[in-house]
Amino acid sequence: MVATACGTGGVGAPSTGSSPSSITMSTSPSPVPTSARAPDPALEIRDADGRTPLVVATKSRDTDSARRLILAGADVNAKDNLQDSAFLYAGAEGLDDILVLTLDHGADVNSTNRFGGTALIPAAEKGHPTTVQILIDAGVPLDHINDSGWTALLEAVVYGDGSPVYQEIVSRLLAAGADPGIRDAQGRTALQIAQQRGQADVARLLG
């Protein structure tokens, strides 16, 4: 499309006799921003174990590769044959840099692993207090019960040793509102388990 503007003098002034100036406006479409393009299908190719490149990078603890894949659009919720996604595995293993990236790019905080547990439960079990707090802040359900009948709080006591690390995890869960009254399949509360196992400091937190 061509828009033509004619030059004029002031009001009542004679024409200068100059030729009109022309402004040409392009009608070709603007390029599609990279962020709006569909992700590369190669990002979701799976190996014999059902692992995408992102799951492989996460399980290899390769933060740089995981970051590149996530920023390129890799699905942070894609699960392998073991039902591990980048989000779930990073949470379970305390890989906080990758975990935060997955949360920033659409991780499903309600997703569960092959044991029927959320990312918060193995994070508590394996003694990752910072990871536990990240997941609490992200809104992972506090009182979800896995297939073994345990919540994150129960697993922190069942698998923990009562050390300061596990005391911190128990404190963080309680401060966030985790229910200490939930019982396991044997009818025991976290307090009763802590008492049975001689975890006196944890028992004081729960009492």
Results as ranks from 00 to 15, higher is better:
residue 159 Y to P: 00
residue 83 Q to M: 04
residue 43 L to N: 05
residue 48 A to K: 14
residue 122 P to L: 05
residue 56 V to Q: 14
residue 69 L to A: 07
residue 89 Y to S: 04
residue 157 V to G: 07
residue 133 Q to P: 02
residue 60 S to L: 10
residue 169 I to L: 05
residue 27 T to S: 12
residue 108 D to E: 15
residue 3 A to K: 15
residue 58 T to I: 00
residue 180 P to R: 08
residue 40 D to R: 07
residue 43 L to I: 07
residue 132 V to N: 09
residue 133 Q to A: 10
residue 168 E to N: 13
residue 201 D to Y: 06
residue 169 I to E: 06
residue 54 L to M: 07
residue 39 P to G: 05
residue 35 S to R: 10
residue 75 D to Q: 03
residue 179 D to S: 15
residue 9 G to M: 01
residue 73 G to F: 02
residue 54 L to F: 06
residue 94 G to V: 06
residue 77 N to W: 08
residue 44 E to D: 14
residue 112 T to L: 13
residue 199 Q to E: 13
residue 172 R to L: 14
residue 171 S to T: 11
residue 36 A to Q: 15
residue 136 I to G: 09
residue 165 V to Q: 07
residue 23 I to Y: 13
residue 30 S to D: 11
residue 91 G to C: 08
residue 191 L to P: 04
residue 17 G to K: 06
residue 84 D to V: 00
residue 47 D to V: 08
residue 74 A to M: 02
residue 174 L to D: 06
residue 34 T to N: 04
residue 34 T to Q: 10
residue 79 K to I: 09
residue 29 P to A: 11
residue 168 E to D: 14
residue 154 L to A: 06
residue 179 D to A: 14
residue 162 G to H: 11
residue 34 T to C: 00
residue 170 V to C: 05
residue 123 A to V: 09
residue 181 G to D: 12
residue 125 E to K: 12
residue 180 P to Q: 10
residue 135 L to T: 08
residue 186 Q to M: 09
residue 15 S to M: 02
residue 153 L to R: 03
